[in-house]
Amino acid sequence: MSRPVSVTEVTLSAPGPDEVLVRIEAAGVCHSDLSVVNGSRERPLPMLLGHEAAGRVLDRGTEVTDLEIGDRVVMVFLPRCGQCSGCRTGGKQPCSPGTEANTAGTLFSGGIRLERAGGPVKHHLGVSAFATHAVVDRRSVVRVDDDIPAEVAAVLGCAVLTGGGAVLNAARPGPDDSVAVVGLGGVGMAALITALSLGVKEVIGIDNLEEKLDQALAAGAGASYTPAQASERGIRADYVIEAAGHPRAFEAAIGLTAPGGTMVTVGLPAPDARSTISPLAITAEAKTITGCYLGSAVPERDIPVFAQLWREGKLAVETLISSRIRLDEINEAFDHLDAGRAVRQVIIFDDPGEAG
C-alpha cells in the first residue's frame, strides 16, 4: 500500500523571467509519482508531486515571447537546454542541467516557487502538476493546438513520450517487423498503440494480468500472452519493448527477442534489481539489447509527431485512460497503480470558466 499523500494549500509565487504560470486541466498518475511515495526513488521532501499534465497559460515571464495567454501546453518532465553534451545526442541522453534541477527538486533555473507554512516545497521533475496551478520553466512545456483534448495532451507528456518514444526513437520498426511489448501499464500500452500506429506486421502484448492482456487485444494487438504462455509457444518478435521495470520482465523480454532482433528496455526497475542472462545466447543469436531512457525523447520534436498521429486517428491515446478522478482521490489512485489495476488514471480539474 502507498503512504498517504496530503492534499493541502500551498503558496505559489509568480513566474520568473523564463517561466510560465499554467492552470492545470488534467494530470496523469504515473509510476514515477508512486516511486516517490513508496520510496523506491529518493527525492527531497516535502515535494508536490505530478509531472504528466496539460493546462492553459495564464501568465508568462518577461523573457517568454513564443507563448500566448490561453495557449494549451503539455507539461514535460524532461527540460532540455539544447546545448549540453546530453542534448547533443538527439534525445539518447537527458539534458545535464535539466537532470540536476530535477534531482534537486527545483525548476530549471534552480528556483523554487512553492511554499507551505513558511518553508519551501520542492518541485517534482520541474512540474508539480497535482495542483490547480503550476509555475514551470518555459523549457518544461510544449504548446499544442486546441483540438488536442486536455486529457489526451496530458498523457502525451509522459506515457506516450516514454513508451511511444521507445518505439519511434529506439526500436524504429519497419512495416514487415513484429513488435512485442512486455509490461502493459501506461508506458507499455503507449508503446503498443504507437507500434500499431506505424502499421507494423504484428503487435503482441505480454503481461501477467489477464485484464491487461484483454486491454491489449481491445486496443488492436494481434495477440496477447502471459510471459509463461509466450515462452511455451515459442513466441518471438523482431523488436521487444520492455516496459515493466522488473528484472524478470527484462529476462522475459530477452527470451522473446528473435535471432537478429532488438530488445529495448525503457522500464525503470529498483536501483538494486538484478537480472540473469546468457551471454552465449546474445552472441549466438546476434541479439541487440539497448537502453532507452525516458523514450530517448526530445519533447519539442516528438510531442507534435504524436499529436499528429492522434489527429489522424492512428494513435488511440484515449485507450490509455483507465479512469478519470478528482484530486482528493489521489491516495486511492496510488493504491490502484501499486496493485497493477490501472493503466492511466487522469485527474480532471474543474474549469473556472475564464483565465486568470
Rank of each mutant, 00 (worst) to 15 (best):
L107Y: 01
E354H: 15
R23N: 11
N102V: 07
G245Y: 02
C292M: 02
G86Q: 04
V22R: 03
A190F: 00
L256F: 02
T290D: 00
Y225A: 04
I303L: 09
D33G: 07
H124W: 12
A154S: 11
H31D: 05
R113I: 00
A171H: 02
G186E: 05
D146F: 12
D350W: 12
A131Y: 12
G163P: 00
I193Q: 02
T276W: 13
A297P: 01
A180W: 00
E68V: 02
D272Q: 15
I254P: 05
I24C: 12
P352G: 14
H246L: 14
D350S: 15
S178L: 05
V266H: 04
V187Q: 04
P352S: 15
I235N: 05
G164I: 00
E232H: 13
E52W: 14
Y239Q: 06
S6F: 11
P149L: 08
L125W: 14
A154H: 09
S109Q: 06
I303G: 03
A101N: 03
E210W: 10
A243V: 01
D335C: 04
L327C: 10
S231L: 12
V127S: 08
K92A: 08
G260E: 13
E52D: 14
R41A: 14
F77K: 13
A221R: 07
A253W: 06
D18S: 10
D328H: 15
L196A: 01
E115Y: 12
G183D: 03
S40N: 11
R80K: 06
V298M: 06
R116A: 10
S128H: 11
G220Y: 06
A131H: 09
A54R: 07
P175K: 14
G90E: 01
F250R: 06
R3I: 09
P94I: 07
S140D: 03
T319P: 04
S6V: 15
A153G: 09
C158N: 10
L12I: 15
Q345A: 13
L67S: 04
G98Q: 07
D147V: 10
S40F: 11
H123I: 08
D137T: 05
K122T: 09
E100V: 15
A244W: 00
T162F: 02
G295S: 10
I347Y: 11
L67W: 04
G245A: 01
G90C: 05
P299S: 08
G126Q: 07
A253R: 08
E19R: 05
V36T: 12
I148Y: 06
P17C: 09
G220T: 09
A249H: 03
G163F: 00
G353S: 13
L45R: 05
R88M: 04
G340S: 10
R138Y: 04
E19M: 04
P269W: 13
L114Q: 07
A54N: 05
G50M: 11
G222V: 07
G98R: 07
G105M: 06
I347P: 13
V136S: 00
P173S: 10
